[in-house]
Design a protein around this nucleic acid. Structure first.
Lengths: 205, 205
DNA sequence: ATTTGGAATTAAACAGTGTTCAATTACTTT
DNA sequence: AAAGTAATTGAACACTGTTTAATTCCAAAT
């Protein structure tokens, strides 16, 4: 049955087309301002078609989501060459922030935007495979640090969450424009300056 | 001219009525789901009237903003009784997180929601007077810690930003539902567990 | 070659949104 | 009582996400 194969391929192609158009529009106009009709116009289909491929608007962008995690994860690959786990944490922080500052809209979608209500069918493990992947890597690295005698008196899971929060906090305050309170002379590049402070703290732990 | 006085008072009253209705609706339905017509219905006026008191929907909620900062600032008042600056930082973190967890929608509006484009007329100092107030207090406290010999080798402004980011990071990951990656046994109360880790780090600085 | 069946796609409608503005009402001043 | 001004309305505009009945398309079966 070569025909139904082709049909399925065509269906997949249209799905990709929708996602492609959604991504382009989303990256140039943002989530809220990208409408279903915008996407439909771009691919020269009627708006209704989108609902045969995705449950709703959230699901469309939820699919893009995964692309972002993939990208972040691939940027994290260079960490394999960083042997010292303490240095690896630093490198992770640096990569994380670089990704966020270079792809603010994608970061926003991945970590700041109101999370679409978890659909029952994809368990949180499926849902967050990539996002969780990065977090798991962080946890493993911190565990390695602890084995070396760092972070005495700390608990692994809460500490991992804390360290994630540090970089996420800086980046999200920056992306959502809450750095106005920073003194003028430090405002420029505040996220990287904050990261330096974080490094300094790590050196003492 | 008692008449124009009364008129102005009435105008102010309606403004307050709008804000009151907006706040109630916003706290029970959230920002996006509260429409201009909802607010107008609640106060039994036509939708158009809102635009004689506020530029747009953003400005209405931006006004509520200030209430939140006021509330947070008033919760911070107990800090006056905490003499040790290092302990004061901890107490600040605790209050900050308590506020955020008790008023997640308000916190969201204050620190996570897309900031309305700064209108030219209210400079950032006016705009963020209350928000900045809390940050200034944090900076002062950290400065006091440094005078006591803590945070050696650190820079005041970036370090203040970093510490703000820590609590903001945890809280915003929680509010926006990004804690699914946390192991089940630690998920419950992860923000407070993270705060404990932060305390532990502070003790070493 | 023509009919049939089923999937892909569409157009139109629904119920809502933020916002604007001409028209109307309310009320103070002359 | 008439005029003038400020407050308020209602309808309209141009959108939004989503649903669904109808239509088109196209391979399979007669």
């Amino acid at each position: 049955m070569g025909i139904s194969d082709r049909k399925e391929r065509e269906k997949e192609e249209l799905r990709e087309k929708i996602l492609g158009a959604a991504k382009v529009l989303f990256l140039e106009k943002g989530f809220e301002k990208t409408s279903i009709r915008n996407i439909a116009d771009k691919i020269e289909y009627s708006p209704g078609i989108l609902y045969h491929y995705f449950r709703d608007k959230n699901e469309i962008f939820h699919a893009l989501h995964q692309d972002g995690f993939q990208q972040l994860l691939s940027m994290m690959q260079v960490l394999n060459s960083v042997r010292n786990p303490m240095e690896r944490i630093k490198a992770m922080g640096s990569i994380y922030i670089t990704f966020a500052l270079q792809n603010p809209d994608m970061y926003d979608l991945m970590f700041i935007k109101e999370a679409p209500i978890n659909h029952i069918h994809d368990s949180e493990h499926d849902n967050w495979k990539e996002g969780g992947g990065t977090f798991n890597y962080l946890r493993d690295t911190i565990q390695a640090c602890m084995s070396e005698g760092h972070f005495e008196g700390h608990q692994l899971e809460p500490l991992s969450f804390l360290i994630w929060s540090i970089v996420h906090g800086m980046v999200s305050l920056h992306i959502r424009g809450r750095c106005e309170v920073i003194k003028e002379e430090d405002k420029e590049g505040i996220v990287n300056k904050g990261l330096e402070e974080f490094y300094r703290i790590l050196d003492k732990l």
